[in-house]
Design a protein around this nucleic acid. Structure first.
Lengths: 350, 350
DNA sequence: AACTGTTATGTTTGCGTAAACATTCGGTGG
DNA sequence: CCACCGAATGTTTACGCAAACATAACAGTT
């Protein structure tokens, strides 16, 4: 077998990708013309264009995005930092981000931070700095962001989702306060004298704001503020809290900070013979897909995670394109979904 | 204000990133030495190294990953194709993938496919071809993979998660058959004469294999195979199916193809006065976090999504490093988690 | 003193692309 | 008939990095 002299490639490797130069050679044009065709630029004869396209197809040519990024100076990629994907909210937000970004021709790179320690976060940001991203969307609590931001490369734009970052970064957040207000008001309008609250973990800003808003709403209505009961977002913690709440004879209405805790709560109440909604009304937050099938179907505050994700991408790309950071908070409204877990308070003395 | 002659930069832009050359200039060394320090290579004097590190810090230097990728010929990135993230399984798998990949120094790029049409999938693959990925993990049904694969660039390695891709690609799958067998056996051992099945959507390979295994297990035990009841994975569909199953007086045991449908099923049975587990035993599949708090806590088949994710990454990186494709299927075992939704069959005539 | 090897550093080169600049060529108006 | 134009195409260059290949300085060995 004689090796053809015309193939100067090292050792006959055929797995390598074709480059513009290869296409140019096959099509009998310069690589610049290939570039023009590849990017859909004008000023190329139709016949030539056809020839180039044919060559591309023949060689299975794909633009090398690394070279492209190097030349252009941007990556067409958005990074996403999360603590966990294991919550419906984060996941749905992420999905919306990925979809919106794809529509804009941007890829999404994931950067999970296993443990929310300062070092972990700093590490994540530092890795992101080396990563090929033009913007970062942070879906997590940001207690730690202040110190961590030092290692953020200056040209990377930041959007913080569903959290609180002061004026430092652009923030897209669900209207936690509004949703909570609606929930509390709904229960009060049903005749309940006050509303108990099954809160999320204290480290969570979202939980914190729901708790604050709950307290504010009660105080604004001139109602007593019952002691706080705290869970950790999990159904299991909701169950444990529910066992305690079931003992409170004067507890007729509970606002759970998320649907999963409400699920556990419902079970605990059922076990203790407290009927929902006849004896106790329960309202959740999130409107996860399952909540319509809880026993009973859960009244809850619907969050539009998809919209949050979309707006995150919008803000990120706006910042990239105008190459200057944004500030301020965008609030995504919630919607009260009334199902069967809330009802009129039983008539009582007083 | 006189412009210093020493700064040849165009127009005084200071937002640009520092390059190795900049660092080299500040540290008074060659850029190659900066490269060595940057990559932790030996053969650099400690004092020099310190000087370079100081210069890096001063300038906020970050390696440009595009240039790096271009030079090295790989991207240190894994792409993930999914139809949806809105299932616990996909999400947890994705999270494990991201974590494992990060540990190996790989980033994960997400590529959602909104609608599972052939064109969409083809488009996704084609976009991935242009994207900066060394390997692709596909988390989805692969009915459409055959035709779509044509547009996969030849050097990209593929792993298919939780699906069926024949011998074409490496496959990492949960042991659906084993888990189903365990579930059916568990119910039969409790004295149930047969087991009904609330199946997932027919388009899903996972659903299909659970259904097949259920039928096989029953036939192997010489039991009657009841008519199939089908849902779409959602709790709501489980509820609707449950209303029908509640009418079947001879139905004492149900194997639901996932936990969410089991949730709806439980509610339907409860509404119709069929007690669980006294009248009907229910078993699920997945062991999602909430299932321990269902009313009653659900007996289910635990899937180790994290392990699936890890093995996907392992396989992907093995392929990348050995630069040759893998074939064959890796099965990740399941584990039966017995809780309170299954119990002994009520004694009956016959 | 002439060799050899080791360590620390510098120089050249090219990865694939696309902007900027150059060239060619068939017209068109003066 | 030539200067000029615009359309089509080619050539050069630089993006930032790191492999490959120098070179330089110095400590031992003979």
């Amino acid at each position: 077998m004689t090796t053809k002299e015309g193939a100067p490639q090292h050792g006959g490797r055929r797995t390598q990708n074709a480059s513009m130069a290869d296409v140019a050679r096959v099509a009998g044009v310069s690589s610049q013309t290939v570039s023009r065709v590849s990017n859909g630029f004008p000023g190329v004869n139709d016949e030539t264009r056809e020839r180039v396209l044919a060559a591309m197809k023949e060689l299975g040519y794909r633009p090398n995005s690394a070279a492209r990024a190097l030349k252009r100076g941007d990556f067409r990629t958005i990074g996403v930092i999360t603590f966990t994907l294991s919550t419906t909210g984060n996941m749905r937000t992420l999905e919306a981000i990925a979809t919106s970004a794809a529509q804009e021709g941007y890829a999404v790179t994931l950067l999970p931070v296993a443990v929310p320690t300062q070092d972990e976060v700093r590490g994540a940001f530092s890795r992101l700095g080396e990563l090929a991203v033009d913007a970062v969307i942070v879906i997590m609590e940001v207690h730690l962001l202040d110190s961590a931001r030092l290692s953020l490369p200056p040209h990377v734009k930041v959007v913080v989702a569903d959290s609180d970052a002061g004026d430092r970064y652009a923030v897209v957040d669900t209207d936690q306060a509004g949703g909570t207000r609606d929930a509390v008001r709904h229960l009060l309008e049903l005749g309940h004298r006050t509303v108990w609250h099954l809160a999320g973990p204290s480290e969570s800003y979202a939980a914190q704001r729901r708790t604050d808003a709950w307290r504010t709403a009660l105080e604004a209505a001139g109602r007593a503020v019952p002691p706080l009961v705290r869970g950790d977002w999990s159904a299991e913690s909701g169950y444990r809290a529910g066992l305690r709440l079931a003992e409170q004879a004067d507890c007729t209405a509970v606002f759970a900070a998320n649907d999963q805790m409400a699920l556990g709560l419902l079970r605990a109440l059922d076990e203790r013979g407290r009927r929902v909604p006849e004896d106790v009304s329960v309202i959740g937050f999130d409107d996860i897909p399952d909540s319509g099938s809880y026993p009973p179907p859960l009244t809850t505050v619907h969050q539009d995670f998809a919209e949050v994700g979309r707006r995150c991408v919008q803000s990120a790309l706006r910042q990239v394109r105008e190459s200057e950071p944004e500030h301020g908070t965008t609030l995504v409204p919630t919607r009260l979904v009334v199902r069967e877990s809330t009802g009129r308070a039983a008539p009582r003395r007083g």
